[in-house]
Amino acid sequence: MTATSTADPIVQAKDLNKSFGPVVGLNNCQFELFPGEVLAVVGDNGAGKSTLIKCLSGALIPDSGEMYINGEQVSFKSTHDARSKGVETVYQTLAVAPVLDISENLYLGREVRKKGILGKVFRSLDKKHMRETSTKSLGELGVLTVQNITQSVETLSGGQRQAVAVARAATFGSQVVILDEPTAALGVNESARVLKLIKELRDKGMSVILISHNMPQVFDVADRIHVQRLGRRAAVVTPETRTMNDVVAIMTGALTIPEEDQQLTPVR
């Protein structure tokens, strides 16, 4: 594997550190995501996957280190900051409000008001616009028929809810979508559907970070695999050049890969 592309990373982190009291979450962690790729982040429990992702999505503030979005240095103070830079996260807990309908959930926290006096003075929501846009973006992802947009999310199955959460991220994430264990709670069919969604996001030009424990799924969708171990990046490999056993070996420290054999540059 030799570097063929010289594209700049869309998300980059240098020497991130984050401790929780005596517990070290991140220890000089490096990270790069390139435009239009699916990067899987894998690692054992406590390896710092979640901490890393929370720093990138603004849910945690790193103790030290630098983060860049499109080469521009950023320091996220909240998930809102990250969103405004086009980084959307689908959390493991889904972050949908079950009693609200699909369209309300898609726009939760960034509702669109009507134009003119109705919106400015009476703060009236433009439900029509939100429903139309929601229908369109769900339709683009092939997850919804039109008439169901006002269905409340609690009447949906786990996979459908996941699809709504992913669609929300895809609708608003102009650059990067982070998916935290998106298939953890799903059955085989629903998992397959979410994986298909991930590929569709990539085909639309989105950059995707996928946190997962599920090796077959990672090897199915990922372009590159970032292996996290003891709070730092142990290696970045591709599904083509390494086996699942190799990746597990890296995770546990049984195997180390010299940097020249890693895939630190984009494959797409």
Binding site: A59, L94, A95, V96, A97, P98, V99, L100, L108, G109
Partner: peptide, 17 residues
């Protein structure tokens, strides 16, 4: 909408911004 969302699931509401 936020009143309903917060009552329904405060964690999800917070994560939704």
């Amino acid at each position: 909408t936020h009143v309903y969302a917060v009552g329904d699931d405060p964690v999800a509401s917070e994560l939704s911004g």
